[in-house]
């Protein structure tokens, strides 16, 4: 199972990166959504997979009675997903702003005034 999902995650990363490499900022955003999915999934898989058993403690017991899924990566992934949403929104707003300012979203054309060239070195 881990091997199968590792392969899937690799493909997701590849597809996401292919989108991000295209040089158009809108495609970059699509890639960003996909790469967050791939990243959360990879953290989840790295914590090993257990079929079916949720990390809940049944009533009357002090600890899980059977072997349950690893709770730690779940907690990490849960917050990561929400943060991912916040950061994606930020990037989206950035795209809107850039489009209004520049009139295009082609990230392969040099942006004006990014790096001041030829400083005087004393």
């Amino acid at each position: 199972m881990e091997a199968l999902l590792s392969g899937l995650i690799g493909l997701l990363f590849a597809a996401a990166l292919y989108q991000m490499l295209s040089g158009h900022f809108l495609r970059f955003l699509l890639g960003l959504v996909m790469i967050s999915n791939a990243a959360t999934l990879s953290v989840f898989v790295a914590g090993r997979l257990t079929l079916g058993q949720s990390p809940l403690i049944p009533k009357g017991a002090d600890a899980p009675l059977v072997e349950v899924a690893n709770a730690l990566p779940q907690a990490l992934v849960l917050t990561a997903i929400v943060i991912g949403l916040g950061l994606f929104a930020f990037t989206l707003f950035l795209a809107i702003r850039a489009f209004r300012r520049l009139g295009h979203l082609n990230a392969n054309s040099a942006l004006p005034g990014l790096r001041p060239r030829k400083e005087t070195h004393s």
Partner: peptide, 12 residues
């Protein structure tokens, strides 16, 4: 979470 997301969507 509620406030942040509503703020984002309303602004958008």
């Amino acid at each position: 979470v509620l406030g942040a997301i509503i703020a984002l969507v309303l602004e958008m």
